[in-house]
Amino acid sequence: MRNTKPWLRLRELYTQRAFAFGDFTLASGQKSSYYINSKKILFHSEAVALLGELLYEATCDLPIQGIGGLEVGAIPMSAAAGMYYHQKGRAIEGFFVRKQAKEHGSKERIEGVIKPGENVAIIDDVLTTGESALQAVKVMEEFGCKVLRVVCVVDRLQGAAERLKGYDFQPLYTVADFGVKTPG
């Protein structure tokens, strides 16, 4: 998957559309001199098609029935992966995990048609500490699913791998792939 035409093109689109430099506070609370806004990618037609292909490549070796993660980033990602799985002739369910259960309607925390006992892959856009992916992992495990892999688009190399130790963690890119130097 690495250095393939889709991988290189999606990296180019991320560089052009998603990276910003300045002073930022991340969702983790950490300060950063750069920010990766995946929402500028996740709604772009070419980028979504490429991402679907790369997420498929990162998970197609697994006997999974579902692919998804924490709202909001996982919603377009699971749709993109689901479309590519369909193109390859393999059925899969997309899902997303709410940060908290709805107060109305079904009051469910997991949206999608996933059943206890199924195998799933957790996906996320950008991970710093890995907390958001771990939150989705825990909800799915408590529901009764087995998490076979955690895939993120970009790992900022600031603790996600350590936090997700014990899980098969595979980032599509690290910030080093974009020429960003990390402390240490």
Rank of each mutant, 00 (worst) to 15 (best):
residue 2 R to S: 12
residue 2 R to W: 09
residue 2 R to H: 12
residue 3 N to P: 02
residue 5 K to F: 12
residue 8 L to Y: 06
residue 8 L to E: 13
residue 9 R to F: 05
residue 13 L to D: 01
residue 15 T to E: 13
residue 15 T to C: 09
residue 16 Q to Y: 03
residue 17 R to A: 10
residue 19 F to H: 05
residue 20 A to D: 14
residue 22 G to I: 08
residue 24 F to Y: 15
residue 26 L to A: 09
residue 26 L to E: 08
residue 26 L to Q: 08
residue 26 L to H: 06
residue 28 S to Q: 05
residue 28 S to G: 10
residue 28 S to D: 09
residue 29 G to E: 06
residue 30 Q to G: 04
residue 31 K to R: 15
residue 34 Y to T: 07
residue 34 Y to V: 07
residue 35 Y to K: 05
residue 41 I to K: 00
residue 43 F to W: 12
residue 44 H to K: 08
residue 45 S to E: 15
residue 45 S to T: 14
residue 47 A to V: 07
residue 50 L to R: 01
residue 51 L to C: 10
residue 51 L to Q: 01
residue 52 G to T: 05
residue 53 E to V: 06
residue 54 L to P: 04
residue 55 L to S: 01
residue 57 E to C: 12
residue 59 T to E: 04
residue 60 C to K: 10
residue 63 P to F: 06
residue 67 I to W: 01
residue 68 G to R: 03
residue 71 E to A: 15
residue 72 V to R: 11
residue 73 G to A: 14
residue 75 I to T: 04
residue 75 I to Q: 02
residue 76 P to I: 04
residue 77 M to P: 00
residue 77 M to S: 03
residue 77 M to G: 01
residue 78 S to Q: 05
residue 78 S to H: 03
residue 88 K to N: 10
residue 89 G to D: 03
residue 92 I to K: 00
residue 93 E to F: 07
residue 94 G to M: 06
residue 97 V to T: 03
residue 101 A to Q: 11
residue 103 E to Q: 13
residue 104 H to Q: 09
residue 105 G to H: 07
residue 106 S to F: 09
residue 106 S to R: 14
residue 112 G to D: 09
residue 113 V to G: 05
residue 115 K to M: 11
residue 121 A to H: 05
residue 122 I to V: 14
residue 128 T to D: 02
residue 129 T to Y: 05
residue 129 T to P: 01
residue 138 K to I: 14
residue 138 K to D: 12
residue 140 M to E: 07
residue 142 E to F: 04
residue 144 G to S: 10
residue 145 C to S: 11
residue 145 C to D: 05
residue 147 V to F: 10
residue 148 L to D: 06
residue 149 R to L: 09
residue 150 V to A: 04
residue 154 V to W: 00
residue 155 D to W: 06
residue 156 R to N: 09
residue 157 L to W: 04
residue 157 L to Q: 15
residue 161 A to Y: 07
residue 161 A to P: 02
residue 162 E to I: 12
residue 163 R to H: 09
residue 163 R to N: 13
residue 165 K to L: 13
residue 165 K to T: 14
residue 166 G to W: 11
residue 170 Q to C: 11
residue 173 Y to R: 09
residue 173 Y to G: 05
residue 174 T to C: 07
residue 174 T to P: 02
residue 175 V to E: 04
residue 176 A to E: 15
residue 176 A to N: 13
residue 179 G to Y: 09
